[in-house]
């Protein structure tokens, strides 16, 4: 039985447009799954279902035995989400207050909140910026702040929607290193991207979406050469016949 279980998930918008068709997927605890696909392939919509932000038109999703549709609040404690636009995820006036936002929503006592905030800031290297306004952070720092907010909620699963978009090279490196650390610390990672180059070497599974359907899934090394058939750029090293290598090297 999968830790995250998606069974025949379909979603259509109120205008009748079907954006996800019959998705069935099972993810084990501690996996690092990369979901890739062209723009408009349904990746972001799929992610929002994992966190209970959207309700399925058909099908069932369960996380560690909890139904996402029936128990969204408990599921949201388990599944943290980093949105594509980091700016819209920042809800408080200082870095520390933003990290505390989630634990405060859980109704924890002040001592526990302070402990969790300090731990999350230390884990993401943001301790020195605790009193800074989130608006003044760099793109990479804003993404790390979003991750810190999820760490403070002690979420087990991280869903990251295009975490490298609009980031410069140092910012992308910082985020990738942070994600690798999360995976090493036994978190389950689900990362949505169309830039396979940066993460493929660290993923345990690659899932490809096209026009709202899941069209391929498997070990990255097994299917990486097929990705260009689905409008995704094949990583350079693979294209040159050197297999998959880390973008950090």
């Amino acid at each position: 039985m999968g830790y995250i279980k998606v069974d025949q998930l379909s979603h259509h918008f109120p205008n009748g447009k079907k954006v996800l068709h019959d998705i069935t997927l099972s993810i084990e605890r501690g996996e690092f799954v990369v979901i890739a696909g062209k723009n408009g392939s349904g990746k972001t919509t799929f992610c929002r279902h994992l966190n209970g932000l959207l309700k399925p038109s058909e099908g069932i999703i369960s996380i560690d035995g909890l139904s996402v549709a029936k128990d969204p609040k408990k599921v949201r404690q388990k599944v943290g989400m980093v949105f594509q636009n980091a700016d819209s995820q920042l809800v408080a006036e200082t870095v520390a207050a933003d990290v505390a936002f989630g634990p405060e929503n859980l109704g924890l006592d002040h001592r526990e909140i302070e402990l969790r905030v300090n731990q999350a800031l230390a884990a993401t290297g943001l301790r020195k910026l605790a009193d800074r306004s989130p608006q003044l952070l760099s793109g990479g720092e804003k993404r790390r702040l979003a991750i810190a907010g999820i760490l403070a909620m002690r979420s087990e699963i991280f869903v990251l929607d295009e975490p490298f978009s609009n980031l410069d090279y140092p910012g992308s490196r910082q985020i990738l290193e942070q994600i690798i650390r999360l995976h090493e610390n036994k978190h389950t990672i689900i990362l949505v991207t169309h830039e396979l180059e940066k993460v493929i070497a660290h993923a345990t599974r690659l899932v490809i979406f096209e026009d709202g359907a899941l069209v391929r899934e498997g070990k990255p090394s097994d299917i990486v050469e097929e990705v260009e058939d689905f409008g995704i750029r094949e990583p350079c090293s693979s294209k040159l016949g050197h297999g998959i290598s880390s973008w950090l090297n």
Binding site: L53, Q77, V91, F101, L106, G107, H110, G149
Partner: peptide
């Protein structure tokens, strides 16, 4: 659009009216 995204971000972090308020 920004208001919509902010609501999603707050919901994803379990926002509720009954939260721990500052002392």
């Amino acid at each position: 659009e920004t208001a919509d995204r902010l609501v999603l971000a707050m919901e994803s972090r379990c926002f509720s009216e009954n939260r721990t308020d500052p002392q």
